[in-house]
Design a protein around this nucleic acid. Structure first.
Length: 889
DNA sequence: ATATTGCATGATTGG
DNA sequence: CAATCATGCAATATA
């Protein structure tokens, strides 16, 4: 064995003694080896190890077909063995997770009653691969290549494995179909045969043996991994003699995808194996032709197996048993071009659907593809855009843009007549189904729903299925939303959809699938369905709610406890840098005293009593009365609550009310909401009410975890509201000067409020440009307004390219269509006087306040502002005459 | 005035 | 970066 070197992260460490430490057991039944130096998983192997030692060839990713050489494993191109065999490249791991192969489900046992042999099959993605593969020895392949369908019955497991080996080598045309019919042996005798059959899918060349071939009735161990077929027994022997191998077998049992086949193999002494294969490349656009037996065999290869009626799995938990098995069928590799379909179009189908479709007939259901309806698909135009690859692969060939009429059947047997046509588009074609409106309306489909196209063989009849996107359960909505952002895997998505297939012969399609339970998280597999998700946005209310919740969470960000930050300087700004992520602090509420001061209230985690704490205190995530060092009389949970229950209720009610107001105000048009906020604030300023607002009032600005004590950025110097300022009117400290500047701006804005609102309306109609453009123009404005703009523009994603700097500075502050929350925040910051707490600490420890942000909301952006906040402010340190005015606020 | 049709455009994504 | 595809929109047809 040659020395292995860790390629993980360039570690390069050689394995001690050339043997890598085996440490991680994989669901796939293999091991992950760890680099002794870097400790990272280097190679995942079990069978693979043998494979690599004995064969210098390559394997392909079971998902995308990407060829993976041995070296790829070392370079992490291969990231795992699949439960059902095969390997998986890094890209597909990200896309689909490390689970079973979509569309290539690990074989399951069929219901005993089923006499049908369902076949799964893989396809080679390219002829190139095939050619390369053909370069390797192919034992016995010639015998099979000349036979379109071969059925071999054997009672000998080893023979079966050899057959699998043969099967592995017969992929000469890009496809193979391997049927393994299993007859369960209930008493261990080879002679007793049950009627159960199992269809085995060979997910990858050489993997069939791993996933489905049993060693002398013992289990499925990758005997056929050896491409030469000579070491199968030895490999098995080695494997079985390896305690870790057995351990990994146990782990494989934990996989719902492997358990059945394990059962099938390990409990069975007798098996019936049917190998069918065709050696003809189905490359013509002959969909309308009469299907030959050969084609039927071919087209049946990806039909999905049904689940056993009784679970054979010993480790399938209850939740999984509740979950209809959603299968992802890799669509048949037929048709013109044989392009691989994007996974988003791979049809997904449940066992229920399969059962529905197949019914009692001998028809074979061939899921072709599916598509999530876009808005235009489901709209009134009546045109359903078909994925090009799908249209060209599975629909009849058309040479003229006018296309051909196409009949597609639905559940009730109703036949819909569409026009299948294309438009020339960028030297390509854009395929559409026209006239789908009646069908869409009949099925009450809308954007986000999924239509599935299948074919019934041997008739070759096209059928439509659909899944309704759910819109009921919040969780499902979240899933949809997540789908829209591409966060969740599609299985999660589908767990929340109703599954119907229109070809239900029982005529009960209408509401089936409604009770489809959620799939377990581990069954999630990312998929790009809905990746064009911009058009599947969540409801505005939900989005706002989510936004606010997120902002609230941001408000509570605290530096990690017990972690000393390191100070870094970036562009002359000092930042605290923490090794640990910030933590969420505890929610507090602020009230205003009649005298003008403020109180911060916190609830004890133990007794739930409310305690008064300093307004500048940043509570950690947990706080109890014993930590109430400010009020020794109430430092025990035994001491009664200072607030009456009614006061507490009022506090919470006001909090809820403010949140509602935020949501409702956010629903207004930006300019309107902005104007409203400006109006209110300007009025408050004029009346001298700002800073003495009714509780809860103060802003809950939270110092960014990276800010160091003493940071003078605009965020950190924002004082929590409280009693009147204790600054001297002549104070020229940075805070006072900043406040003074902003107050001046505010007053100026108030005077111009009406005219600016009009301008804002005009401005709103203009185009918005990049922030860079704005920054380019901001240099012409004076320092004060530039400073204000810097603050305000932080949250602005849209800048008016046509703006005049001087005017825009005020517009933005007053009501231009920017983020209303941010502008409000800025204005409230202006009004956030007095500065007692700031002065008290003389450093910027905390800006904790709460309910002001309940109004202004955009706290999440504020803490990030300091970097660019105060650059223009230092030139204005005089003007202490304004401080008195500040104090009046 | 409204609906339909054919094409163009641009966002998105995969290679 | 090129292919794909969702959608916009102008031209045309129809009510």
């Amino acid at each position: 064995m040659s020395t292995k070197r860790c390629m993980n992260g360039g570690c390069g460490a050689a394995a001690a003694g050339g043997v890598w430490r085996k440490g991680w057991l994989l669901r796939s039944g293999g091991f992950a080896t760890l680099c002794d130096k870097c400790g990272l998983a280097y190679e995942k192997l079990s069978f693979c190890e043998s494979f690599h030692q004995k064969e210098s060839g390559w394997r392909e990713c079971a998902f995308c077909g990407k060829r993976l050489h041995c070296g790829c494993i070392a370079s992490k191109s291969i990231v795992g063995l699949l439960d059902c065999g095969g390997v998986q490249c890094l890209t597909c791991l990200k896309n689909y997770g490390n689970s079973s192969i979509p569309g290539e489900s690990v074989p399951d046992l069929l219901p005993q009653s089923s006499q049908k042999v369902l076949a799964l099959s893989a396809r080679c993605s390219t002829d190139e691969k095939m050619n390369e593969f053909d370069a390797s020895p192919a034992n016995g392949s010639s015998e099979l290549q000349i036979t379109s369908s071969v059925r071999i019955i054997t009672d000998d497991a080893t023979t079966k494995c050899n057959l699998m080996q043969l099967g592995r080598n017969i992929d000469v045309n890009g496809y193979s179909t391997i049927l393994l019919s299993q007859r369960e042996n209930t008493n261990g005798s080879f002679s007793h045969v049950k009627q159960e059959e199992v269809a085995l899918y060979r997910g990858d060349r050489g993997d069939l043996g791993r996933s489905g071939c049993s060693g002398k009735g013992q289990g499925l161990l990758g005997l056929s991994q050896d491409p030469h077929g000579s070491d199968s027994k030895d490999a098995l022997k080695d494997y079985l003699s390896n305690p870790l191998a057995n351990a990994s077998l146990s782990m494989s049992l934990g996989s719902p995808n492997t358990v059945n086949i394990l059962e099938a193999c390990s409990n069975t002494g007798t098996r019936q194996i049917a190998l069918s294969h065709h050696g003809i490349i189905d490359d013509g656009r002959d969909q309308n032709k009469v299907l030959t037996t050969f084609q039927n065999a071919h087209r049946a290869r990806h039909v999905l197996p049904k689940l056993p009626k009784a679970s054979h799995g010993v480790t399938l938990d209850a939740s999984k048993e509740l979950v209809p098995q959603m299968r992802v069928a890799r669509p048949p590799a037929e048709g013109r071009g044989r392009n691989q379909l994007l996974p988003r179009y791979w049809p997904r189908i449940t066992d229920q659907e399969l059962q529905q479709i197949s019914g009692d007939s001998n028809s074979t259901i061939v899921p072709l593809f599916e598509k999530v309806l876009s808005a235009s698909d489901a709209g009134r135009i009546g045109r359903l855009v078909l994925p090009k690859a799908c249209a060209e692969a599975y629909f009849p060939p058309i040479s003229q843009p006018e296309g051909i009429p196409l009949k597609i059947q639905d559940a009730k047997g109703k036949e819909w007549h569409f026009q299948f046509r294309f438009w020339p588009n960028n030297n390509s074609r854009m395929y559409v189904l026209e006239g789908v409106t009646p069908c869409i309306q009949s099925l009450q489909l809308q954007a986000g729903d999924t239509v599935t196209f299948s074919r019934i063989d041997p008739e070759g009849k096209l059928v439509m299925g659909f899944r309704k996107a759910t819109n009921t359960a919040p969780l499902q909505e979240a899933q949809i939303s997540a789908l829209a952002t591409g966060v969740l895997g599609s299985e999660t998505f589908y767990s929340g959809v109703n599954v119907n297939l229109l070809t239900d012969k029982h005529g009960s399609w209408a509401n089936e699938g409604l009770l489809q339970p959620l799939l377990t998280p581990e069954k999630r597999r990312s998929r790009n369905i809905g990746s064009k998700s911009k058009r599947l946005l969540m409801d505005n209310d939900d989005a706002m709610e989510l936004k606010l919740s997120w902002e609230e969470a941001q408000d509570l960000l605290r530096p990690p406890p017990m972690v000393q930050p390191s100070i870094v300087i970036i562009e002359d700004q000092e930042f605290e840098e923490y090794e640990e992520p910030p933590v969420l602090g505890k929610r507090t509420f602020f009230t205003a005293r009649a005298s003008g001061g403020q109180d911060q209230w916190i609830q004890c985690d133990d007794c739930c009593k409310w305690r008064r704490i300093p307004v500048d205190f940043l509570p950690p995530s947990k706080w109890t009365c014993t930590e109430n060092t400010w009020d020794s009389k109430r430092s025990s949970c035994a001491v009664p609550d200072e607030l009456t229950s009614r006061e507490v209720q009022d506090l919470l009610r006001q909090h809820a009310e403010l949140k509602r107001q935020r949501i409702s105000s956010s629903k207004q048009s930006p300019s309107e909401a902005e104007s409203t906020g400006i109006d209110a604030l300007a009025t408050a300023v004029a009346l001298g009410e700002v800073g003495n607002q009714a509780s809860p009032s103060a802003a809950a600005t939270t110092r960014h975890p990276r800010h160091r004590p003493g940071c003078t950025c605009i965020v950190c110097i924002q004082p929590p509201s409280g009693k009147g300022p204790k600054h001297s009117p002549a104070c020229t400290c940075n805070v006072c000067m900043t406040v003074k500047r902003r107050f001046k701006t505010l007053m100026m804005r108030k005077k111009k409020r009406q005219s600016e609102r009009e301008e804002a309306e005009v401005s709103k109609k203009l185009s918005w440009g990049s922030r860079e453009e704005l920054e380019g123009t901001s240099g012409s404005m004076n320092a004060r307004e530039g400073d204000l703009m810097e603050t305000l523009e932080i949250s602005k994603g849209h800048i008016d390219l046509n703006s005049q700097p001087q005017r825009d500075a005020e517009q933005r502050a007053s009501g231009a269509p920017s983020s209303p929350q941010m502008s409000m925040m800025s204005l409230l910051q202006v009004a956030s006087l007095p500065l007692d707490n700031y002065l008290k600490q003389n450093r910027l420890v905390s800006l904790t306040a709460s309910e002001q942000q309940q109004v202004s909301s955009s706290s999440a952006t504020v803490p990030q502002a300091p970097v660019e906040s105060e650059s223009g402010g230092d030139d204005d340190r005089c003007g202490s005459d304004k401080i008195r005015s500040d104090a009046a606020i």
